[in-house]
């Protein structure tokens, strides 16, 4: 296959970036998208040109490290991660535009690499159950209905890649935050802290500069793990309930969810 690639190149966080065009004629349909870029990079290095930087690690769709905005869609045309996207999804002769995630809270570090540490800070704000090592009761002490456990798992499957933010015209992180809030709110173990958790995580989400949710559901359509916006609904219920009854935060300032 022969492809024309328009790739965002940017030397550093404070440099001005631009699209550069590359013709790539060593593409096989069995390659993953990242392997296609590997081959391009080998060619570039051979020519003495700096390779294109992009994030990747596990290459099996679970670590959430790979990103890439491909032809205007996060992770490209399929609802999967970029590492699991294969070139058989493209046509010979096609032009592919490759950009980094575009969102203010995800500043570009270099080329296609962005800084997603805002996601970590949101998790640190409350995405946990406070239980010290060694303080746990027997695992079968609290039966959890299979349906509830399965629904919690549906939410917990989030890989934190940021496609939801990249897909959203508001750069909202609601699906990401909702996945954790919903996962822990569903489980009995998470009930003790459910109000503080949702308040703190939403406050941190707003502090990071993510936009508001306007229910376009673009996040759900692009989420490589198929996480449903029903979890956003649960987040909203959790949040309103917390705002009305919480004894936790002195100030009720913060996001409108």
């Amino acid at each position: 296959m022969k492809l024309t690639l328009k790739i965002w190149r940017q030397k550093g966080p404070n440099e001005k970036g631009e699209f550069k065009t590359y013709v790539h004629d060593k593409v096989s349909p069995d390659m993953s998208f990242l392997e296609m870029l590997d081959v391009l990079n080998t060619e570039l290095i051979k020519k003495g040109e700096e390779p294109v930087h992009f994030d990747h690690d596990c290459r099996e769709g679970i670590c959430g490290m790979c990103s890439l905005y491909i032809n205007g869609r996060p992770h490209g045309p399929l609802q999967t991660t970029t590492c699991q996207l294969h070139m058989r999804s493209f046509k010979d002769g096609e032009t592919i535009t490759i950009e980094p995630w575009r969102a203010k809270p995800f500043p570009v570090i270099k080329d296609l690499v962005v800084d997603r540490s805002a996601f970590d800070r949101i998790q640190q704000a409350g995405g946990y159950i406070s239980v010290n090592t060694g303080a746990a009761p027997d695992a079968n002490e609290i039966p959890i209905p299979k349906k509830i456990a399965d629904e919690a798992m549906d939410a917990a499957t989030c890989i934190g890649c940021g496609a939801c933010v990249a897909a959203c015209k508001n750069a909202s992180a609601m699906l990401f935050v909702a996945a954790k809030v919903s996962h822990l709110a569903l489980l009995p173990q998470g009930h003790a802290e459910r109000k503080e958790r949702v308040e703190r995580m939403v406050a941190q989400m707003d502090a990071e500069g993510f936009g508001a949710c306007t229910n376009t559901r673009a996040c759900e359509a692009e989420c490589p793990k198929g996480i449903s916006v029903a979890h956003i609904a649960r987040l909203n219920r959790e949040y309103y309930n917390a705002m009305l009854t919480s004894y936790e935060l002195p100030s009720k300032a913060g996001g409108d969810g």
Binding site: I129, N140, P143, A149, L187, Q189, G190
Partner: peptide, 19 residues
């Protein structure tokens, strides 16, 4: 297993709610 369940790890469960 006890520790992970307490943290909220959603292990697979049977219909009776046990692991």
């Amino acid at each position: 297993i006890d520790q992970c369940v307490a943290q909220g790890v959603p292990f697979a469960r049977e219909y009776g709610g046990l692991l």
